[in-house]
Design a protein around this nucleic acid. Structure first.
Ligand code: FES
Ligand code: FES
Lengths: 153, 153
DNA sequence: ATAATTAAGGACAAATATATCCTTAATTAT
DNA sequence: ATAATTAAGGATATATTTGTCCTTAATTAT
Protein backbone atom coordinates (compact mmCIF):
# COMPACT_ATOMS: atom_id res chain seq x y z
CA UNK A 1 0.00 0.00 0.00
CA UNK A 2 2.66 2.50 1.04
CA UNK A 3 6.17 3.05 -0.29
CA UNK A 4 9.20 1.60 1.47
CA UNK A 5 10.04 5.09 2.70
CA UNK A 6 6.70 5.42 4.41
CA UNK A 7 6.78 1.91 5.85
CA UNK A 8 10.21 2.58 7.32
CA UNK A 9 9.03 5.93 8.64
CA UNK A 10 5.99 4.46 10.35
CA UNK A 11 7.99 1.69 11.98
CA UNK A 12 10.92 3.91 12.93
CA UNK A 13 8.77 6.61 14.49
CA UNK A 14 6.90 4.05 16.55
CA UNK A 15 10.15 2.49 17.72
CA UNK A 16 11.75 5.81 18.59
CA UNK A 17 8.62 6.98 20.35
CA UNK A 18 8.49 3.83 22.42
CA UNK A 19 12.13 3.50 23.45
CA UNK A 20 13.40 7.06 23.64
CA UNK A 21 13.00 10.21 25.66
CA UNK A 22 14.83 13.54 25.91
CA UNK A 23 17.45 11.87 28.17
CA UNK A 24 17.59 8.58 26.30
CA UNK A 25 18.06 9.17 22.60
CA UNK A 26 18.25 6.38 20.09
CA UNK A 27 20.86 6.16 17.33
CA UNK A 28 20.11 5.37 13.71
CA UNK A 29 22.02 2.08 13.98
CA UNK A 30 19.72 0.88 16.76
CA UNK A 31 16.56 2.09 15.05
CA UNK A 32 17.29 0.53 11.68
CA UNK A 33 18.29 -2.77 13.23
CA UNK A 34 15.22 -2.80 15.42
CA UNK A 35 12.73 -2.19 12.66
CA UNK A 36 14.64 -4.10 9.97
CA UNK A 37 15.35 -1.28 7.55
CA UNK A 38 18.50 -0.21 5.67
CA UNK A 39 20.49 2.18 7.87
CA UNK A 40 21.47 4.98 5.47
CA UNK A 41 18.16 4.96 3.70
CA UNK A 42 16.29 5.13 6.99
CA UNK A 43 18.54 8.03 7.99
CA UNK A 44 17.29 9.98 4.98
CA UNK A 45 13.71 9.21 5.87
CA UNK A 46 14.21 10.37 9.45
CA UNK A 47 15.78 13.59 8.19
CA UNK A 48 12.49 14.42 6.52
CA UNK A 49 10.71 13.85 9.80
CA UNK A 50 13.10 16.07 11.75
CA UNK A 51 13.86 18.95 9.40
CA UNK A 52 10.86 20.20 7.43
CA UNK A 53 8.54 19.54 10.30
CA UNK A 54 9.19 18.77 13.92
CA UNK A 55 7.74 15.37 14.58
CA UNK A 56 11.07 13.91 15.62
CA UNK A 57 13.88 15.66 17.49
CA UNK A 58 17.50 14.83 16.90
CA UNK A 59 20.82 15.70 18.51
CA UNK A 60 24.27 15.14 17.06
CA UNK A 61 27.32 14.00 19.00
CA UNK A 62 27.96 11.43 21.72
CA UNK A 63 24.79 10.19 23.40
CA UNK A 64 22.95 11.91 20.61
CA UNK A 65 20.25 10.38 18.50
CA UNK A 66 16.54 10.66 17.87
CA UNK A 67 13.68 11.11 20.28
CA UNK A 68 10.08 12.28 20.49
CA UNK A 69 8.77 14.76 22.98
CA UNK A 70 5.64 13.87 24.94
CA UNK A 71 3.90 16.53 22.90
CA UNK A 72 5.03 14.92 19.65
CA UNK A 73 3.62 11.59 20.76
CA UNK A 74 0.18 13.15 20.69
CA UNK A 75 0.55 13.62 16.92
CA UNK A 76 -1.71 11.54 14.73
CA UNK A 77 -0.27 8.75 12.63
CA UNK A 78 -1.65 10.59 9.61
CA UNK A 79 1.00 13.27 10.16
CA UNK A 80 3.66 10.76 9.17
CA UNK A 81 1.85 10.04 5.91
CA UNK A 82 1.53 13.77 5.27
CA UNK A 83 5.24 14.45 5.77
CA UNK A 84 6.16 11.59 3.46
CA UNK A 85 3.45 12.86 1.10
CA UNK A 86 1.60 9.59 0.95
CA UNK A 87 -1.89 10.52 2.20
CA UNK A 88 -2.84 10.52 -1.46
CA UNK A 89 -2.44 6.73 -1.43
CA UNK A 90 -5.60 6.68 0.62
CA UNK A 91 -7.39 9.71 -0.72
CA UNK A 92 -6.88 9.41 -4.46
CA UNK A 93 -9.14 7.57 -6.89
CA UNK A 94 -8.75 3.80 -7.02
CA UNK A 95 -8.70 3.91 -10.84
CA UNK A 96 -6.16 6.74 -10.85
CA UNK A 97 -8.45 9.58 -11.92
CA UNK A 98 -7.34 13.02 -10.77
CA UNK A 99 -10.13 13.55 -8.30
CA UNK A 100 -11.93 11.07 -6.10
CA UNK A 101 -15.23 12.70 -5.39
CA UNK A 102 -18.96 12.36 -5.78
CA UNK A 103 -18.82 14.95 -8.56
CA UNK A 104 -17.02 12.81 -11.13
CA UNK A 105 -17.19 9.37 -9.61
CA UNK A 106 -15.40 6.45 -11.25
CA UNK A 107 -17.16 3.07 -11.39
CA UNK A 108 -15.49 1.97 -8.14
CA UNK A 109 -16.28 5.16 -6.27
CA UNK A 110 -19.63 4.22 -4.80
CA UNK A 111 -17.96 1.38 -2.96
CA UNK A 112 -14.70 3.10 -2.14
CA UNK A 113 -16.40 6.14 -0.67
CA UNK A 114 -17.56 3.91 2.16
CA UNK A 115 -14.05 2.62 2.84
CA UNK A 116 -11.92 5.72 2.36
CA UNK A 117 -13.16 7.45 5.50
CA UNK A 118 -12.29 4.35 7.50
CA UNK A 119 -8.75 4.32 6.14
CA UNK A 120 -8.31 8.00 6.89
CA UNK A 121 -9.74 7.52 10.36
CA UNK A 122 -7.35 4.64 11.00
CA UNK A 123 -4.47 7.12 10.82
CA UNK A 124 -6.07 10.43 11.69
CA UNK A 125 -7.89 9.36 14.79
CA UNK A 126 -4.96 7.45 16.17
CA UNK A 127 -2.02 9.16 17.88
CA UNK A 128 1.47 7.76 18.17
CA UNK A 129 0.77 7.47 21.89
CA UNK A 130 -2.33 5.38 21.16
CA UNK A 131 -0.16 2.95 19.24
CA UNK A 132 2.41 2.83 22.02
CA UNK A 133 -0.27 1.85 24.48
CA UNK A 134 -1.20 -1.08 22.28
CA UNK A 135 2.46 -2.01 21.92
CA UNK A 136 2.60 -2.92 25.61
CA UNK A 137 0.89 -6.07 24.45
CA UNK A 138 4.03 -8.10 23.82
CA UNK A 139 2.43 -10.02 20.95
CA UNK A 140 2.47 -6.89 18.84
CA UNK A 141 5.62 -6.42 16.82
CA UNK A 142 7.48 -3.88 14.72
CA UNK A 143 9.80 -6.28 12.93
CA UNK A 144 9.39 -9.39 10.86
CA UNK A 145 9.96 -12.54 12.86
CA UNK A 146 12.20 -13.89 10.12
CA UNK A 147 14.42 -10.84 10.48
CA UNK A 148 15.19 -11.69 14.06
CA UNK A 149 18.60 -13.31 14.29
CA UNK A 150 19.84 -14.96 17.42
CA UNK A 151 23.52 -14.12 17.60
CA UNK A 152 25.65 -16.32 19.81
CA UNK A 153 28.41 -14.55 21.72
CA UNK B 1 -2.87 3.00 -4.03
CA UNK B 2 -2.15 0.95 -7.13
CA UNK B 3 0.63 1.24 -9.73
CA UNK B 4 0.06 3.01 -13.03
CA UNK B 5 -0.01 -0.39 -14.74
CA UNK B 6 -2.88 -1.54 -12.58
CA UNK B 7 -4.78 1.71 -12.90
CA UNK B 8 -4.50 1.53 -16.68
CA UNK B 9 -5.54 -2.13 -16.61
CA UNK B 10 -8.62 -1.46 -14.51
CA UNK B 11 -9.75 1.42 -16.71
CA UNK B 12 -8.92 -0.33 -19.99
CA UNK B 13 -10.70 -3.55 -19.08
CA UNK B 14 -13.80 -1.66 -18.07
CA UNK B 15 -13.76 0.34 -21.29
CA UNK B 16 -13.23 -2.71 -23.48
CA UNK B 17 -15.89 -4.64 -21.63
CA UNK B 18 -18.36 -1.84 -22.07
CA UNK B 19 -17.81 -0.97 -25.71
CA UNK B 20 -16.77 -4.24 -27.32
CA UNK B 21 -18.13 -7.63 -28.24
CA UNK B 22 -16.92 -10.55 -30.37
CA UNK B 23 -18.11 -8.73 -33.50
CA UNK B 24 -17.05 -5.25 -32.43
CA UNK B 25 -13.46 -5.29 -31.25
CA UNK B 26 -11.68 -2.23 -29.96
CA UNK B 27 -8.17 -1.22 -31.01
CA UNK B 28 -5.43 -0.12 -28.64
CA UNK B 29 -5.50 3.40 -30.07
CA UNK B 30 -9.15 3.79 -29.16
CA UNK B 31 -8.76 2.24 -25.73
CA UNK B 32 -5.74 4.29 -24.67
CA UNK B 33 -7.32 7.51 -25.89
CA UNK B 34 -10.59 6.70 -24.16
CA UNK B 35 -9.08 5.99 -20.76
CA UNK B 36 -6.26 8.52 -21.03
CA UNK B 37 -3.26 6.21 -20.88
CA UNK B 38 -0.06 5.99 -22.98
CA UNK B 39 -0.71 3.76 -25.98
CA UNK B 40 2.34 1.49 -26.12
CA UNK B 41 2.52 1.11 -22.39
CA UNK B 42 -1.15 0.20 -22.22
CA UNK B 43 -0.54 -2.34 -24.98
CA UNK B 44 1.99 -4.10 -22.75
CA UNK B 45 -0.46 -4.12 -19.89
CA UNK B 46 -3.20 -5.59 -22.06
CA UNK B 47 -0.80 -8.28 -23.25
CA UNK B 48 -0.56 -9.50 -19.68
CA UNK B 49 -4.33 -9.67 -19.51
CA UNK B 50 -4.62 -11.63 -22.76
CA UNK B 51 -1.66 -13.99 -22.68
CA UNK B 52 -0.93 -15.48 -19.28
CA UNK B 53 -4.59 -15.63 -18.46
CA UNK B 54 -7.64 -15.23 -20.59
CA UNK B 55 -9.51 -12.28 -19.19
CA UNK B 56 -9.33 -10.37 -22.46
CA UNK B 57 -9.46 -11.79 -25.98
CA UNK B 58 -7.54 -10.24 -28.82
CA UNK B 59 -7.41 -10.68 -32.59
CA UNK B 60 -4.76 -9.31 -34.93
CA UNK B 61 -5.42 -7.89 -38.36
CA UNK B 62 -8.02 -5.60 -39.87
CA UNK B 63 -11.09 -5.17 -37.69
CA UNK B 64 -9.07 -6.85 -34.99
CA UNK B 65 -8.65 -5.58 -31.47
CA UNK B 66 -9.62 -6.45 -27.95
CA UNK B 67 -12.89 -7.71 -26.54
CA UNK B 68 -14.37 -9.56 -23.60
CA UNK B 69 -16.66 -12.53 -23.83
CA UNK B 70 -19.88 -12.47 -21.85
CA UNK B 71 -18.32 -15.16 -19.70
CA UNK B 72 -15.27 -12.99 -19.05
CA UNK B 73 -17.49 -10.13 -17.92
CA UNK B 74 -18.56 -12.30 -15.01
CA UNK B 75 -14.99 -12.23 -13.72
CA UNK B 76 -14.42 -10.35 -10.48
CA UNK B 77 -12.47 -7.11 -10.50
CA UNK B 78 -10.04 -8.79 -8.12
CA UNK B 79 -8.87 -10.96 -11.01
CA UNK B 80 -7.34 -7.90 -12.64
CA UNK B 81 -5.38 -7.15 -9.49
CA UNK B 82 -4.21 -10.77 -9.35
CA UNK B 83 -2.96 -10.79 -12.94
CA UNK B 84 -1.07 -7.55 -12.38
CA UNK B 85 0.11 -9.00 -9.07
CA UNK B 86 -1.19 -6.15 -6.99
CA UNK B 87 -3.60 -7.87 -4.60
CA UNK B 88 -0.78 -7.61 -2.08
CA UNK B 89 -1.36 -3.85 -2.02
CA UNK B 90 -4.53 -4.65 -0.14
CA UNK B 91 -3.55 -7.80 1.69
CA UNK B 92 -0.11 -6.97 2.98
CA UNK B 93 0.72 -5.33 6.28
CA UNK B 94 0.30 -1.56 6.46
CA UNK B 95 3.72 -1.21 8.11
CA UNK B 96 5.35 -3.50 5.54
CA UNK B 97 5.85 -6.58 7.68
CA UNK B 98 5.96 -9.84 5.76
CA UNK B 99 2.69 -11.19 7.07
CA UNK B 100 -0.48 -9.37 7.96
CA UNK B 101 -2.21 -11.67 10.37
CA UNK B 102 -3.51 -12.02 13.89
CA UNK B 103 -0.50 -14.20 14.70
CA UNK B 104 2.14 -11.46 14.51
CA UNK B 105 0.07 -8.31 14.39
CA UNK B 106 1.71 -4.94 13.91
CA UNK B 107 0.46 -1.97 15.93
CA UNK B 108 -1.92 -0.95 13.15
CA UNK B 109 -3.31 -4.42 12.61
CA UNK B 110 -6.23 -4.30 15.01
CA UNK B 111 -7.68 -1.44 13.04
CA UNK B 112 -6.67 -2.60 9.60
CA UNK B 113 -8.14 -6.05 10.06
CA UNK B 114 -11.55 -4.43 10.07
CA UNK B 115 -10.90 -2.57 6.81
CA UNK B 116 -8.96 -5.13 4.79
CA UNK B 117 -11.95 -7.43 4.25
CA UNK B 118 -13.93 -4.47 2.95
CA UNK B 119 -11.21 -3.61 0.44
CA UNK B 120 -10.98 -7.20 -0.72
CA UNK B 121 -14.73 -7.41 -0.97
CA UNK B 122 -14.87 -4.24 -3.04
CA UNK B 123 -12.97 -6.08 -5.78
CA UNK B 124 -13.79 -9.73 -5.15
CA UNK B 125 -17.51 -9.41 -4.78
CA UNK B 126 -17.86 -7.16 -7.79
CA UNK B 127 -17.78 -8.48 -11.35
CA UNK B 128 -16.85 -6.50 -14.41
CA UNK B 129 -20.50 -6.77 -15.44
CA UNK B 130 -21.56 -5.25 -12.12
CA UNK B 131 -19.40 -2.24 -12.88
CA UNK B 132 -20.79 -1.97 -16.41
CA UNK B 133 -24.31 -1.83 -15.03
CA UNK B 134 -23.31 1.13 -12.88
CA UNK B 135 -21.62 2.76 -15.85
CA UNK B 136 -24.97 3.22 -17.54
CA UNK B 137 -25.29 6.12 -15.16
CA UNK B 138 -23.77 8.76 -17.40
CA UNK B 139 -22.31 10.68 -14.47
CA UNK B 140 -19.82 7.89 -13.93
CA UNK B 141 -16.58 8.28 -15.83
CA UNK B 142 -13.44 6.40 -16.83
CA UNK B 143 -11.35 9.38 -17.80
CA UNK B 144 -10.27 12.59 -16.15
CA UNK B 145 -12.42 15.51 -17.20
CA UNK B 146 -9.31 17.59 -17.84
CA UNK B 147 -8.12 14.97 -20.32
CA UNK B 148 -11.16 15.49 -22.49
CA UNK B 149 -10.26 17.65 -25.48
CA UNK B 150 -12.85 19.09 -27.78
CA UNK B 151 -11.35 18.92 -31.24
CA UNK B 152 -12.88 21.19 -33.87
CA UNK B 153 -13.08 19.76 -37.39
C1' DA C 1 41.78 22.24 22.78
C1' DT C 2 41.47 17.49 21.14
C1' DA C 3 39.41 13.41 20.12
C1' DA C 4 35.38 10.71 19.76
C1' DT C 5 30.62 10.17 18.53
C1' DT C 6 26.57 10.90 15.98
C1' DA C 7 23.21 13.16 12.71
C1' DA C 8 23.10 15.94 8.24
C1' DG C 9 23.72 15.93 3.72
C1' DG C 10 25.95 15.39 -0.94
C1' DA C 11 27.18 12.22 -4.47
C1' DC C 12 26.55 8.23 -6.54
C1' DA C 13 24.80 3.34 -7.58
C1' DA C 14 21.34 -0.09 -8.32
C1' DA C 15 16.78 -1.57 -8.96
C1' DT C 16 12.27 -0.91 -10.55
C1' DA C 17 8.52 1.40 -12.90
C1' DT C 18 7.05 3.87 -16.73
C1' DA C 19 7.23 5.02 -21.51
C1' DT C 20 8.51 4.85 -26.54
C1' DC C 21 9.98 2.88 -30.82
C1' DC C 22 10.49 -0.50 -34.15
C1' DT C 23 10.09 -5.11 -36.07
C1' DT C 24 7.44 -9.39 -36.41
C1' DA C 25 3.43 -12.19 -36.67
C1' DA C 26 -1.37 -12.82 -37.45
C1' DT C 27 -5.42 -11.76 -39.84
C1' DT C 28 -8.33 -9.75 -43.21
C1' DA C 29 -9.68 -7.45 -47.52
C1' DT C 30 -8.71 -6.97 -52.22
C1' DA D 1 -0.98 -13.83 -53.74
C1' DT D 2 -0.58 -9.04 -52.21
C1' DA D 3 -1.35 -5.32 -49.51
C1' DA D 4 -3.24 -3.37 -45.49
C1' DT D 5 -4.30 -3.54 -40.67
C1' DT D 6 -3.64 -4.62 -36.01
C1' DA D 7 -1.74 -7.07 -31.81
C1' DA D 8 2.69 -9.25 -30.00
C1' DG D 9 6.98 -8.60 -28.56
C1' DG D 10 11.96 -7.08 -28.42
C1' DA D 11 14.97 -3.33 -27.57
C1' DT D 12 15.79 0.74 -25.59
C1' DA D 13 15.02 5.15 -23.07
C1' DT D 14 13.58 7.86 -19.12
C1' DA D 15 12.02 8.60 -14.49
C1' DT D 16 11.51 7.31 -9.91
C1' DT D 17 12.49 4.67 -5.96
C1' DT D 18 15.54 2.50 -3.15
C1' DG D 19 19.99 1.92 -1.35
C1' DT D 20 25.10 2.93 -0.24
C1' DC D 21 29.16 5.55 0.73
C1' DC D 22 31.71 9.31 2.19
C1' DT D 23 32.39 13.95 3.97
C1' DT D 24 30.80 17.66 6.96
C1' DA D 25 28.79 19.65 10.94
C1' DA D 26 27.37 19.42 15.60
C1' DT D 27 27.96 17.89 20.15
C1' DT D 28 30.07 15.75 24.00
C1' DA D 29 33.70 13.70 26.85
C1' DT D 30 38.40 13.93 28.04
S1 FES E 1 -13.59 8.58 -7.99
FE1 FES E 1 -12.57 6.68 -8.23
S2 FES E 1 -12.59 5.94 -6.17
FE2 FES E 1 -13.55 7.89 -5.95
S1 FES F 1 0.02 -7.03 10.58
FE1 FES F 1 0.26 -4.96 10.02
S2 FES F 1 -1.68 -4.49 9.19
FE2 FES F 1 -1.92 -6.59 9.69
Amino acid sequence: MFSKSTEYALRAVLYIAKYSSADKKIGIETVSTAVGSPKSFTAKVLQKLTKNNCLINSVSGPNGGFFLTEEAKKTSMLRILEILEEEHVITKCVLGLQECSDVNPCPMHNRYKLIKPLLIDMFENKSIQDVLNELTDSSITLIDVQDIRITHK
